[in-house]
Amino acid sequence: MKTFEHYAPDSIEELLEMLKSKPNAKLIAGGTDLLLQMKQGTAQPETVISLKNVEELRGFSVSKNGYRLGAGMTLRGITRSNELTQNFPGLVYAAGVVASEQIRTLATLGGNICNASPSADMVPPLIALDAVVQLVSNQGQRDLSLSDFFKGPGESVLKSGEIMHSIFLPQPSGNMIYSKHAPRKFMDLAVVGVAVRLAKKNGKINEARVALGAVGPVPFRAEKTEALLAGQTLTTELMLEAGEMAAGECVPIDDIRGSAWYRKRMVKVHVRRNLETLR
């Protein structure tokens, strides 16, 4: 590993100031991705800025409109939150299937997002919940729908000098569930990750979200499938059709975890199963 300078600012202001003078610095939150890259030599930062002392990033607040989760909340912290378990059981479930207890102690919500892995477990559930991320820099802040945050594998719209501050979740309507397809129940990356949220009124679906992970360069919403479901009554035929359509919307690759062919089929299965659970 190459030698690097290490700083640990205490506040957002100090952090942003530091980032301005050291634009190539790498931010370390949990470090479970960055440290691995540094050990392997795929990341060789000259400066590492730790987010550990920035208390503000670990905040969690509730307002009339929704919930604000600090980007520095750990995944373990999310799984232990009664408030989140009550209101977003699907999101808490997703946090609990990432890696292991030890990794979840370190790994943060913001890190899971900003690492921009197509298979990040937190992302499809957050997209299905209409999450809005707040990015801050010296120039101010901007709010962005999470589905517009990713540009490609490992790439996001985060600019130099900008950090993810928090993730806003509006009051949930309907139920959201996430299912992860992987050979092992734990300690594995998703071959396919499927989050589905349905809000129903008088027996009909009035809002549908289908968010897919690990089946394209970025996690994304299967909008045609959502449109197919909206306004309909959930029948067995519709669930099968939705599965087919979602499989058609994804653009997976062949890799060590699964072939594109297999991934499409697993999307079909998981979309249908999740809809069945939500019926």
């Binding site: 640990a8 440290l35 550990k52 990794i103 102690t105």
Partner: peptide, 20 residues
């Protein structure tokens, strides 16, 4: 695995300087 502030962590993925 060690306990860091009471919680389990894989100590191979923690920078010692982050443990102030």
């Amino acid at each position: 695995t060690v306990l860091l502030n009471g919680e389990p962590v894989t100590s191979c993925l923690v920078l010692a300087v982050d443990c102030e």
